[in-house]
Design a protein around this nucleic acid. Structure first.
Lengths: 252, 252
DNA sequence: GTGAAGTACTGATAAAGATCAATATAATGC
DNA sequence: GCATTATATTGATCTTTATCAGTACTTCAC
């Protein structure tokens, strides 16, 4: 926990936890060496701004650990989280002059960063890498559209249940080193919430109070247990999934 | 208006209205001939289902005229439009077994369609084409996230104003054959709504009634005029844009 | 430990939007 | 043309969620 502050120096791809699941998985050993040469492992603390809105792009990154929130803010201060970046996701908007959103560390984060121009040159040179990033982007687009349904059509309870279900899925993926994990956890699940109540509200298009009330409801029902404020235990993930899609009926 | 029913036979890329703005714009004449050989112009009538949810992908398409809505539906019948496809946009989810949403013609549509496998082979062969589609996808992702803010954080009036502003922007792009149009119309604008009130509601996460009331409000204020039910005249697009972002204040 | 700041929960009330219901307008078929 | 159906508007009422307000719990500094 008490590491060197920001830069951790050159990273060792061979021992990297996300070697095969991140975009770099597209590269053969030779090419990987080339990419590794421009990569630099960095650490961010919860709350650090990683990419600023409207600012010129300076780097891209693969997330190794932690969670980053992508946020839009309007002139009058309203906020909406438009994406969460988990390991082994890629951070950054390729081929744009500036970044279309704020990227802020939701938790402490470790990321393998690549300088803007050098990385885009790699993309041009290795079409396999670009292809992998393209597939990544298509998945992100699918996820964003999935979330549009949550934002536009779900009730507060369904929204909160959807969020918990999402975290349960992603957290259980972390640590699983092979495959893209269609492995829905269907039994029990336990995880730490990577977001504050305010963040959850901004992700779901709700207020803090409503999030808090819905969490209390889910707790009262027995759908979840709140161990501390951040630690959640879900005895039956299927049940949570049902609530997330509105197939509730018959709740204590 | 009274055309041959569906197939219009081989298309002529040379005279195509969207030749340079669509993804095919990435190709040189030689390659374009190759793509043209697998393309087939088709017409759809308003309401036709173009791609069905969960069904295997059978074709992709470039939209030449008209508007297509991308829709998600839940088991209990709730609907959310997660994207609108205008000319010269690309329709279809590359590299996936099945389509993640419904695609339905909102208006009559003309589209240049490409068979699934043949098109994906073109992508593999011509990395320039893939790159262009990638850039396209990145723009779609930006737009989806932009819309997440609308869905999560805007009021009903702001949502309806945002929708009208979006249509004003896209409709004025149609017919403009060069460039990607950062050309915000800032004076007056006149267009036909490509969506019914029910569609607009599904796009904005509202009910039909609320959409109707907000349109009536905007009309009462003088921000818009409703000529027929579908024809809209906006005397001052900037004013509409202000309402869309909540910088209202002082309305008659 | 104590105090202070940040974070989270709960209650009372207000407001925005949904729902229910009726009517009006437009499009379509015969 | 008229009847029928789909689409759109408007009003009355109810529900959900936001807002306002107060309190409790955590974390951190000292």
């Amino acid at each position: 926990m008490a590491h060197d502050p920001i830069h951790l120096g050159r990273n060792n791809c061979a021992t990297c936890a996300i070697r095969h699941r991140a975009v770099c998985g597209a590269l053969a050993d030779e090419e990987l060496k080339e990419l590794g040469a421009i990569g630099r492992m960095r650490q961010f603390k919860a709350g650090d701004i990683i990419l600023a809105d409207e600012e010129p792009t300076t780097f891209f990154a693969n997330i190794v650990s932690g969670v980053i929130k992508l946020e839009k803010t309007s002139a009058d201060g309203r906020q909406q989280i438009v994406g969460l970046v988990f390991p082994p996701d890629f951070l950054g908007r390729a081929f744009a002059k500036s970044n279309p959103y704020f990227a802020q560390a939701a938790t402490d984060v470790e990321a393998c960063t690549y300088p803007h121009t050098a990385f885009e040159n790699m993309l041009k040179k290795h079409s396999g890498l670009e292809h992998r990033l393209f597939e990544n982007t298509l998945n992100e687009l699918d996820a964003a559209r999935e979330w549009m349904f949550v934002l536009g059509r779900k009730s507060a309870q369904e929204k909160v249940a959807s969020f918990l279900h999402l975290i349960a899925k992603r957290q259980s993926m972390v640590g699983c080193s092979h495959g893209h994990a269609e492995n829905e956890p269907s039994g029990a699940s336990r995880f730490d919430l990577p977001l504050t109540r305010a963040d959850i509200a901004d992700f779901l298009g709700l207020t803090i109070e409503t999030v808090s009330r819905q969490l209390s409801n889910l707790k009262r029902q027995g759908t979840i247990q709140l161990l501390s404020g951040r630690e959640v235990f879900v005895p039956n993930v299927d049940r949570l999934a049902s609530l997330a899609s509105g197939d509730d009926e018959a709740v204590a």
